[in-house]
Design a protein around this nucleic acid. Structure first.
Lengths: 68, 68
DNA sequence: ATATTATGCATAGTTTACTATACTTTTCCT
DNA sequence: AGGAAAAGTATAGTAAACTATGCATAATAT
């Protein structure tokens, strides 16, 4: 039971925004976005909500549970 | 900008389930639920999704951003 | 081809989520 | 009123989120 996400695709669809630009938009560092994107971090709910809000999506459209 | 939640009310509506029972259901300790409920913890997205799933709600129906 | 920008990756440090335990206080039932 | 269950609170420890920095590699443009 781990966390999956669509960040890479969403960044691409969203004007191909960079990890850095997304990081700036939600107030974290580029490494944090990178780590979330590559499944190394299970981000805080507040951060996940900020990211979802940035893309204009619900949290579940960005993050989801992967049962394994 | 902090995280708010409806846990107390949701537990009440959901058969008045205890903090301990909710903790067991999602695989954490009672203190973790207590701390989230009282705004001391900003839980991981995975845990927040598990809690939301337990109540049969979307994450946004349980957790939300409080702009302050 | 070379400069630039974006991404990947490593180390190390700080902060905070989460656990374990234990004690007190409140709530609720009979 | 008395007892049990639930909730609040405290301390201390571990694990993981997040920062800072720096360098290597990949992609893009001129």
């Amino acid at each position: 039971m781990e966390l999956g996400n669509n960040l890479k695709k969403l960044r691409f669809d969203h004007d191909n925004i960079s990890q850095q630009a997304l990081a700036n938009a939600v107030g974290v560092t580029r490494l944090t976005i990178h780590s979330i994107e590559n499944g190394k971090f299970n981000p805080s709910t507040l951060l996940a909500l900020k990211i979802s809000r940035f893309f204009g999506l619900s949290l579940e459209e960005v993050f989801f549970i992967v049962d394994d």
